[in-house]
């Protein structure tokens, strides 16, 4: 072990720039966590501001809307995580069965495209196409005699609009990852299955799915760390006071508190709180992934 480390030193040197970047941009700023325990005044800086212990955390928990905001965040992000695995997995399995290469590539590119649009732009577009009076979605529903729905203004609809639009934007990206994993499956397994008379469905069930199990588990594990990230950019560009009940999430609340009202201390405290929860969740799922799928990243 040690000898190989020594003889491979140029390779380790190759890592150096990445490590430096990581230290500078990821580990360095972590020092800023101290803000969570301070009555932070920017002009006084980290060292000059007064220490107030856990007051910021107490203050956050005392906010009357905290329960609602936590619930919204978890509800929206859990739906996003589940749909974010199921939808791209299904699509990639379907695409994998397609023989026509040009068609397959075309579909792949098209569903990948929205990934590159920012939520600022999509927000404007969605407000237009979901509009009850002029939007194309409601015009279509109208053909079936359905009354216009104010998707972005009704609490009963808003979380689902968030989930669906998010999946629509991002599923192409995950689909590509799954498709890449699918190419790694040994074709001789399929040949053997055909010999044994397995149908297409059986092949998927017994060969394809087990073949990409590790990737699915990996992506699940990584996404669970995001359970308290319900997607700031998206919600921020779509929500309005009408749907605060169902759409106000931790990040949008922190934005209004931290950046608009300049409450850096409490805002950082919430951020730290989120990170701690994420760390616990990732550690747990990592352990579970190892136990049940015998999979480990490190």
């Amino acid at each position: 072990m040690k000898r190989s480390t020594l003889s491979n030193w140029p390779l380790h040197l190759l890592l150096l720039p990445a490590v430096i970047l990581l230290l500078v941009y990821c580990y360095g700023p972590m020092f800023g966590i101290v803000i969570a325990f301070q009555k932070f005044i920017p002009a006084k800086g980290f060292l000059g501001s007064d220490w107030i212990g856990f007051d910021n955390f107490r203050y956050i928990l005392s906010l009357s809307d905290m329960r609602e905001i936590m619930w919204n965040t978890v509800y929206i992000s859990v739906m996003k995580i589940i749909a974010g695995v199921v939808v791209p997995l299904t699509v990639s399995l379907l695409l994998n069965e397609i023989r026509h290469r040009l068609f397959k590539r075309g579909v792949q590119t098209l569903i990948y495209l929205p990934h590159f649009l920012s939520w600022v732009i999509l927000g404007g577009i969605l407000v237009d196409i979901l509009s009850p009076s002029t939007g194309i979605v409601n015009a279509f529903l109208g053909l079936f005699g359905i009354n216009p729905v104010y998707f972005l203004g009704e609490n009963s609809w808003f979380p689902y609009v968030l989930v669906i639009s998010d999946i629509w934007k991002e599923f192409g990206f995950s689909t590509i990852i799954y498709l890449a994993a699918l190419t790694g499956i040994n074709p001789s397994l399929y040949e053997a299955a055909v010999m044994d008379g397995a149908s297409r469905i059986k092949q998927i069930w017994h060969i394809t799915l087990p073949g990409i199990r590790t990737i699915v588990v990996l992506l699940m594990t990584l996404s669970l760390g995001n359970v308290l990230n319900a997607g700031f950019e998206q919600v921020f560009n779509l929500y309005s006071p009408q749907v605060y009940d169902s759409g106000d999430i931790i990040d949008t609340y922190v934005y209004r508190m931290g950046l608009i009202s300049a409450q850096y201390g409490p805002a950082t405290a919430i951020g730290l709180f989120k990170s701690v929860i994420s760390l616990v969740l990732i550690s747990t799922t990592y352990y579970l992934a190892y136990k049940f799928a015998k999979y480990r990243i490190f």
């Binding site: 006071p241 009408q242 605060y244 009940d245 209004r256 009202s261 409450q263 409490p266």
Partner: peptide, 25 residues
Amino acid sequence: PLTLMSERSADMNKIQLETFTKIIF
């Protein structure tokens, strides 16, 4: 903005905007 005011404003503005919107709506 004074100390308490900036501490509380996010919370207080939220219900104000929410209530006004709902009433008009």
